[in-house]
């Protein structure tokens, strides 16, 4: 963390050393995929929206720590992060309101399917995806705000 992107280096030189960058390039997809797996299988195995969302946020934070904040902010800007977080919260509310089709708030109205299958359990996987989106993007936005503040202070 000693050679920060704010010390005036060109964009290619920002971030950590070449070894860290190469390993990050190899593993980042796997980490993101693992987060999505944890979110999708929340109703079958340990995990769920909260843990998977934090893993998704960690994958983007990994990019930011290795490559510097400019490249990470180019992938998801702050405005897009805020929008995605609002979309996650609204999606959860819409799923809650769907319950009025059956008569009450938060009723599981969709078809239950057979247990032990990925597409089962009605609205629970959809709620997991909404919460995963919200938690992941929200925590990433928090970290982005902290890092941008640190960079602005050092200038």
């Amino acid at each position: 963390m000693s050679d920060n992107p704010n010390t005036g280096l060109p964009a290619g030189k920002a971030g950590m050393s070449l070894i860290v960058k190469t390993i990050t390039r190899l593993t980042i997809g796997l980490i993101l995929l693992f987060g999505i797996y944890i979110v999708m299988h929340g109703h079958l195995s340990p995990g769920g929206g909260f843990a998977g969302g934090v893993i998704i946020a960690l994958s983007f934070i990994h990019i930011m720590l290795a490559f510097g904040k400019d490249i990470a902010a180019a992938k998801i800007s702050r405005g897009l992060a805020s929008n995605l977080e609002s979309i996650g919260a609204l999606m959860f509310l819409v799923i809650a309101l769907l319950g009025f089709l059956g008569g009450s708030f938060f009723l599981n109205v969709l078809a239950k399917g057979r247990p032990f299958k990925l597409f089962s359990a009605g609205t629970i996987p959809l709620s997991n995806i909404a919460i995963g989106l919200k938690v992941g993007v929200g925590l990433f936005a928090i970290f982005l705000a902290l890092v941008i503040l640190e960079g602005a202070k050092r200038k």
Binding site: V54, L139, I142
Partner: peptide
């Protein structure tokens, strides 16, 4: 507790940001 853990992380981040502001 599962919801409480994530709320705790957000609360810690909020406290840290206030602390950074105070240090500044």
């Amino acid at each position: 507790v599962m919801t409480s853990i994530v709320i705790g992380l957000a609360a810690t981040a909020l406290l840290i940001s206030i602390a950074i502001r105070i240090y500044e």
